[in-house]
Simulated scan of single mutants.
Amino acid sequence: MRIIRFLDNNSQIVLAALTDQEEVYPIPFNDFMELVNLAEKSGISTLKLVETSISGVTALKERVEDLQLIVPIEAPEVWASGVTYEKSRDARNYEATGGKVDVETCYDKVYDAERPEIFFKSTAARTVGPNTPVYLRSDSNWQIPEPEVALVISKSGKIVGYTAGNDMSSRDIEGENPLYLPQAKIWKHSCSVGPAIRLAETVEDPYNFQITCRIYRNNKLVVEGNANTSQLKRRFDELVSFLEKDNEIFDGTVLMTGTCIVPPNEFTLQDNDQIEIEVSTIGVLSNPVKEQQRSKEAVK
């Protein structure tokens, strides 16, 4: 069972359940965490509350593809995890050393360390949903999407849902100096989440999500990669435990868990590219790419 949000014909936000048969049922809640919290207060599972809410209700005639989907949760904070896959470590090393091999970097150290890399990524205002443009950073010349499985977390640190995320990244900025990480990761529309939230209790094995990333240019597929969360170096609960340390977690916080799909080193996103990130049993997060006005100080 998945949860989506969409705009109706009057531009009103509707929360809905999306079944595995792709049937859409509006449910009488304002947002995902209201649903989760009411289920917990009532002493039942979130799935049971959803099933009760749609019992006897007729599914919408519209297909989910015909709905104007929006971000499935307005996360107060989005955090991200880095270097959680071997391929991510290798890509960061390439950036930091200019392609040199057998040179130990900070990324090797964090990959093997007890403490994971966790960094702040976005707020609700900077995060977009399906079919909304993600932006290119104006002072970067080497940018890629980072397709990831993202966790939806309650204020108690419980994983209540899974979704797909795009942690847009400027490889040249981070490669120039690791201290530039916030600038390499955070800018307007540099984060997308969606299209749906899979209820955590309906996921049999979260370490078997199949992730696929496709990038189209002029309607032609130019990049495609696949990965599986079985390749993760760290566990999801481990990442959450470090995010929680001496920190206040807000209901609906999203934590991205790292990427294992990296486009070829010679590739960079361009204006009007189309990114598709598909996570099995969750759906396809699709976003067009748009170029922002480049500043006078932009890198030449």
Rank of each mutant, 00 (worst) to 15 (best):
I73M: 13
D108E: 06
S122L: 13
P145Q: 11
A17C: 07
P288K: 10
R137H: 15
T97V: 10
P206A: 03
K296Y: 12
G82T: 04
K290R: 14
A113W: 01
K233W: 07
M1V: 09
S11T: 06
G99D: 09
K41W: 08
E266H: 14
N37Q: 14
D273S: 00
G98L: 02
I282H: 05
V240M: 14
E114R: 02
F250H: 13
A80W: 01
I144K: 09
A16H: 08
M33L: 15
E201C: 08
V101D: 07
A164N: 00
E77Y: 11
D112I: 05
E77G: 00
S55P: 00
A80K: 01
N93C: 12
S55R: 11
Y216A: 09
T105A: 04
F267W: 13
G165I: 10
N166G: 07
M256V: 04
D273R: 06
N141M: 13
P72I: 14
K158C: 06
I27D: 10
R2Q: 03
E278G: 01
D246F: 15
L199S: 05
L151R: 05
L243Y: 09
G98W: 06
M168K: 03
L285C: 06
E62R: 08
Y111F: 15
Y135N: 07
W187I: 06
R171L: 15
L179S: 08
I282Q: 00
P145G: 06
